[in-house]
């Protein structure tokens, strides 16, 4: 009787009679009889190459998404200014101030906003003013076209961000890295 049969019989007895630890150790010995597989010689090089390619792709998508987001922000700002003009000037100034971190500009924008608010209230209801401004602006074909462009740019930015977040899912397809 060879050592493998002896080991196996020891394990089977341990499973029936022995404590868990003995059965565990005996089975560990028997388990070494199982054939083990060796990966193909090119496996390591192929895998590392795939990992680096995936990283480059993630960075590319991140760059595109950032560019699209900036583009969308710029387009939105331009369209807002074109459609609403000076009425949102204070808002754009505020955004610019926050973005640049300038406290003085922020205070200036706050003062401008306060003045605009005072003027609007003096002219009548703020809601009515805003509503009529929006309706008047949206009624024009150029405004509609401009808003559609903004929405398209924003949708593209969102799609690219989605691609970025799902980049791991793209990597999941094992066939994607077969050479």
């Amino acid at each position: 009787m060879g050592r493998w049969r002896t080991d196996t019989e020891d394990w089977l007895r341990a499973e029936q009679e022995g404590p868990e630890e003995v059965a565990d150790a005996a089975f560990a010995q028997v388990f070494t009889a199982l054939p083990t597989l060796q990966p193909s010689p090119a496996f390591v090089a192929r895998t590392v190459e795939a990992a680096w390619e995936a990283r480059a792709r993630r960075r590319q998508v991140a760059g595109l998404a950032a560019a699209a987001a900036v583009l969308a922000a710029v387009a939105t700002t331009v369209v807002l200014y074109a459609v609403f003009g000076a009425r949102v000037g204070w808002l754009l100034t505020t955004i610019a101030a926050v973005a640049s971190g300038s406290v003085l500009s922020l205070l200036g924008a706050a003062l401008t906003a306060a003045e605009w608010w005072k003027a609007t209230v003096a002219a009548g209801s703020t809601a009515v003013a805003a509503g009529s401004t929006a309706i008047a602006a949206l009624a024009g074909p150029y405004s509609v076209a401009a808003l559609a462009v903004v929405e398209l740019v924003a949708a593209a930015a969102l799609y690219l961000l989605h691609r970025l977040l799902q980049s791991d899912a793209a990597v999941r397809s094992p066939r994607a890295f077969c050479f």
Partner: peptide, 18 residues
């Protein structure tokens, strides 16, 4: 499946790297 096992292992290493 050996071929699939290699692909899955490769995929795991790529994902682990990320």
């Amino acid at each position: 499946d050996r071929a699939v096992a290699e692909e899955l292992a490769q995929d795991a290493f790529v994902r682990a790297f990320a």
